[in-house]
Amino acid sequence: MPIDCDADIVSARQKGRELASQCGFPTTDLAVIATAISELARNIVRYAVHGEVLVRLVEADGKRGIEVTASDDGPGIADITLALQDGYSTSGGLGLGLPGTRRLMDEFELLSDFGKGTKVTVRRWKR
């Protein structure tokens, strides 16, 4: 799903919620996945202008789960460690943004080449 504006975020959330619902996640977990998509897509709109969010079901070691990948061709992140610190960028020290997303999800991967864009992958497993 391409992410260019706030309206795209809404559809990405919806797709994520639908897919997670098919997978059998409880309602409260659906909200968690929608929130992760919101936070990741928000970063795209804010810093990269254009990017995309990919949501898919995954399976590993007999566990089923959902994976959200947000990628953009924006300026990239110069210092990943710094970006994952609370209080840096949008989260304003409240623990939101990338660090907040990391805490909500089971797995979190961040790839960023400065100047070549950013790719964040998060996963949540069904319990």
């Binding site: 929130t35 409240l94 907040g100 805490r103």
Partner: peptide, 11 residues
Amino acid sequence: LLPFEMSHRQS
């Protein structure tokens, strides 16, 4: 509540 949850986990 989810933003509060993120903040709570940070604390």
